[in-house]
């Protein structure tokens, strides 16, 4: 008998919006952008990636010392606490849409949020950039 993997996949390749920012975003900007996305309908999930900020100094003679990076902190998104562990540089937004008109409208709203909060520019693309059903790696450690 096997357990279910922790991630929830749509099972079908829904469209995904990839936003690559020109500069790595501070926690404050990430918070504003995510709260902007909160208002938009048809967003199934948002995944972020960027450069990792370790909690502790992870090598060298001071290994184990607290890192105290000012950008590694908890932000509020839609009233919930989200712990940021990276300096965010990419957003992957999975959209739960069925036709092109709704897709265009939703992407337009996403772009407007980015225009309002991302000062140094970004690149927005529509496609499919991550998997949509479980694979063997999802069962690792289950």
């Amino acid at each position: 008998m096997s357990s279910n993997p922790p991630a929830e996949y749509a099972g079908v390749p829904l469209p995904e919006v990839r936003i690559t920012t020109t500069r790595l975003l501070f926690a404050e900007t990430t918070e504003k952008v995510l709260n902007g996305f909160e208002e938009i309908e048809h967003i199934r999930q948002v995944t972020m990636s960027g450069e990792s900020l370790p909690r502790k100094i992870n090598s060298g003679p001071n290994k184990g010392l607290d890192n105290n990076h000012t950008q590694r902190r908890t932000i509020k998104v839609g009233g919930k606490d989200v712990e940021l562990t990276t300096l965010v540089g990419n957003f992957f937004i999975e959209l739960d849409v069925e036709d092109d008109m709704v897709l265009d409208e939703t992407v337009g709203k996403i772009k407007a949020v980015c225009d309002a909060h991302i000062e140094h520019g970004f690149n927005l693309e529509i496609g499919r950039y991550s998997k949509y059903r479980p694979t063997l790696t999802d069962y690792r450690g289950v």
């Binding site: 020109t22 500069r23 450069e51 300096l87």
Partner: peptide, 26 residues
């Protein structure tokens, strides 16, 4: 940077500084 030098090929941060996971400079 004596160790954890990662950052030379990363995007700059919003202030235009090179990324440093250990934030040695502000």
């Amino acid at each position: 940077r004596g160790a954890t030098v990662h950052g030379h090929a990363c995007r700059l941060d919003e202030n235009g500084l090179m990324f440093d996971a250990w934030q040695r400079y502000l």
